[in-house]
Amino acid sequence: MTSIVTPDLCDAYPEVAVLEPLFVNFGGLEAFFGPVRTVKCFEDNSLVRQAVNEPGDGAVLVVDGGGSTRCAMLGDRLAEQAAGNGWAGILMYGCVRDVDELAETELGIQALAAHPRKSEKHGEGQRDIPVSFAGVTLSPGQWLYADNNGILVADERLSLD
């Protein structure tokens, strides 16, 4: 994967949308990018499980978990599945767990916080729809770029070449 630096991208593309600085890096890859695919669910990670079991093809799974800090929506097993299926990363507007294992997984993962409790599993939620959080609306097909400096979203793939 090409190295990215979000400050350089912001300088080169001042029109990009930058998410509010709410997220913590939990994954083994500190920088990641790819086309956006979305899941919207609340305290039910059934659709997250479904998505990470599909080919990721270098995409970033953006999960609008409603900002819940009452349970984790991603743990070590789902992260391993995502990495194995070719996802570039996961942006979780919610919590994750198994953080020591996540840090060893070859996957970009940013989330609000860690929480030890697992989520419910009732099959509820929506996929491939625009989601809004952290001051930005993210839509399938946009490009997300994330590193330790922040997260930005663009309507097309960006390049510093």
Rank of each mutant, 00 (worst) to 15 (best):
E156P: 02
P140S: 05
A113T: 08
D161K: 12
Y145C: 01
F32K: 00
K40E: 15
G86R: 06
A134L: 11
W143Y: 14
E106S: 13
L158M: 06
I4H: 00
V36Q: 03
G94Q: 06
L152C: 04
E124P: 02
A79S: 12
E156S: 14
N25Y: 01
P140M: 06
D100V: 08
E106F: 10
V18Y: 09
E15A: 11
E124L: 15
A154E: 04
F133P: 01
E80K: 14
Q142N: 09
L22M: 13
L29N: 07
R117H: 15
A103M: 02
A31I: 02
I151E: 02
K40H: 12
C71L: 11
L78R: 01
P21E: 06
Q50H: 13
H122W: 15
L29M: 11
G141C: 05
F32V: 00
A72V: 08
R127S: 09
G89T: 06
Y93I: 01
P7G: 04
N85Q: 12
V136D: 04
Q110M: 15
L112H: 10
V16C: 02
Q50G: 02
D128H: 14
L102K: 05
I151G: 00
L107D: 05
V24S: 09
V60L: 03
Q126P: 03
G65I: 12
